[in-house]
């Protein structure tokens, strides 16, 4: 037992084994930091979409509802979704323009599923500032965004106007010839 007089100093006596003394402190602080980090994670993650929001994240759609040459707009994940049944003429025009100069070059074939070129599924939100483009308008027969004059072609690619990117193709798959699951 260390000898301490009544007027004990407030300095801890330096032990014979400073490295051992420090190890405990380092281990404690490291454990505290690790514990704090694992505690913070749930508090941060709780702001991520909750299970019921995610449940509505995917939707199934019956393609027989869309006539040829027409488009149906659904609400998906809070945003508009275009499902367009393209005519042969529209597909041909889109493929013919594959090599044309455009802001965001992309082949038409890359924007549809193989063997299902007539079905174009796009998020109906202009990539400029988010307005909903109108069907069939504009110089390229695809869509026209009235807010700032972006023109999209029959493949949803930006051809003229301020939008930087083509209309986004979401994740989707064909469950059958007439049903598609989006998201």
């Amino acid at each position: 037992m260390a000898d301490t007089a009544v007027g004990a100093t407030t300095e801890p006596e330096h032990g014979n084994d400073p490295s051992r003394r420090d190890f405990i402190y380092i281990a404690t602080i490291a454990a505290a930091a690790g514990g704090a980090a694992s505690l913070v994670w749930p508090f941060v993650d709780q702001m991520n979409p909750s299970a019921d929001t995610l449940a509505l994240a995917s939707t199934e759609f019956d393609l027989t509802k869309v006539a040829e040459g027409q488009q149906v707009t659904l609400k998906w994940r809070g945003k508009p979704l275009f499902v367009r049944n393209r005519t042969a003429g529209e597909i041909q025009k889109a493929v013919a323009d594959d090599g044309a100069a455009m802001t965001d070059p992309q082949k038409d074939a890359d924007r549809v599923k193989p063997g299902k070129a007539q079905w174009l599924v796009l998020i109906g939100s202009c990539t400029h500032l988010g307005c909903v483009p109108t069907f069939g308008g504009g110089d390229y027969g695809g869509w026209f965004c009235p807010c700032h004059g972006s023109h999209y072609d029959t493949s949803g690619r930006i051809r003229k106007g301020p939008a930087p990117l083509n209309l986004v193709v979401p994740e989707y798959e064909f469950l059958s010839d007439t049903t598609v699951k989006i998201g």
């Binding site: 301490t4 004990a8 006596e13 003394r21 405990i24 404690t28 454990a31």
Partner: peptide
């Protein structure tokens, strides 16, 4: 389990810090 280990570490730190103090 973590808290038990952490308490152990803290107790050891406490004893070390207070070793020569009454």
């Amino acid at each position: 389990l973590y808290l038990l280990l952490f308490s152990g570490l803290l107790y050891a730190s406490y004893r070390k810090v207070w070793k020569n103090e009454s």
